[in-house]
Design a protein around this nucleic acid. Structure first.
Length: 314
DNA sequence: GAAACGTGGCC
DNA sequence: TGGCCAAGTTT
């Protein structure tokens, strides 16, 4: 959960997961849809799929016991170099070098490394390895991560009250504020589409399960036209049902993903039960808005729901 | 190596 | 207000 995500954002999700699935076996036995529903809103949904696969692997291939070496941990889904080292050091008390964004920043400053990320990663890892103590490497790693989160922050680091200030080379050089350097970022493009809010006579709305991998993989969506850089003249040809009368919802949904901005128009329509009954398939759902919380709607789709739901209220 | 992959908080 | 960045991993 903590991969690329702040502690504050994770805490309520962590509490919910631990209460609902207290053991790795319980998580392994859960349907993926339930795991994704519990993860909805946290983002990077491949993590939820990987966590679930990992629980299955530990349960089925490791007799419910996590492997105790970094190399073996790395074999598990969703566990990369950082997580493997964190588990080895924190859970198993081994001398493993834990390198996350905090550690990279602290190392770049402590040793005044001017080489930009990600080029500097191997060097920062070597430096981190050199400082890792033979005992209590897990406590040490968490201390450095907490230092990075509270004192050695990305902007305006609190060097005056840093316990490492007497040995920090960037502080001596006056470069702490500007380190670590990073390669220039690319501009994010904008994509556009039209979401189709299709209501059945009983008030249920058409939802759809996205393909199991890729963007929002396995999550539930309000069906929409394809999201394109160049919008098409008639998006309604991509609606899941051919409908004569669409009504445009005033306003738009804007959302920023990691690598593109999304602008969504919303169109509404009612369909007969007969027409609705023709839409079938494992990926099709008809759900009343009051039951949306039982499904894995990512935040971008919650924005669509909010906009569509505003019709009639004003 | 580079790109894909969510969302929210901060300044 | 828009860019930056977060306890990274996978393809």
């Amino acid at each position: 959960m903590l991969q690329q995500t702040t502690v504050a954002a994770v805490i309520p999700y962590f509490q919910k997961f631990m209460a609902r699935w207290p053991t790795v076996q319980a998580l392994a036995a859960a349907p993926i849809d339930e795991v994704l529903t519990a993860w909805a809103g946290l983002g990077y949904y491949a993590r939820a799929r990987n966590l679930h696969r990992c629980a299955k692997a530990v349960t089925e291939a490791h007799r419910g016991i996590f492997p105790a070496t970094e190399v073996a941990l790395m074999e598990l889904p969703g566990i990369g170099p950082y997580t493997a080292a964190a588990i080895a050091a924190i859970a198993f008390g081994q001398r493993a070098t834990v390198v996350d964004g905090n550690v990279e920043r602290v190392m770049a400053r402590f040793h005044n490394v001017a080489v930009p990320l990600p080029t500097a990663k191997p060097e920062l890892r070597r430096l981190a390895h050199g400082l890792t103590p033979p005992t209590r490497a897990g406590d040490y790693a968490q201390a450095v991560m907490d230092l990075g989160a509270t004192i050695c922050t990305p902007k305006s680091p609190a060097c005056a009250r840093c316990p490492l200030r007497s040995h920090c080379q960037a502080l001596t050089a006056g470069t702490a504020q500007e380190l670590p350097r990073r390669a220039a970022k690319k501009r994010v493009p904008t994509r556009r589409g039209t979401a189709f809010w299709i209501v059945r006579s009983d008030g249920a709305v058409l939802l759809r399960r996205r393909p199991p991998r890729g963007l929002l993989g396995g999550m539930i969506e309000v069906p929409s036209s394809e999201w394109r850089a160049e919008p098409i003249a008639d998006p309604f040809v991509e609606a899941p049902i051919s409908i004569r009368r669409w009504s445009a919802v005033r306003g738009r949904v804007e959302h920023t993903f990691t690598h593109f901005h999304l602008v969504l128009e919303v169109a509404m329509a009612s369909v007969s039960d007969k027409a609705a009954s023709r839409l079938k398939g494992a990926d099709i759902l008809w759900v009343r808005p009051r039951d949306f919380h039982r499904h894995a709607l990512p935040n971008v789709m919650k924005k669509v729901v909010d906009l569509a739901g505003s019709v009639g209220r004003r």
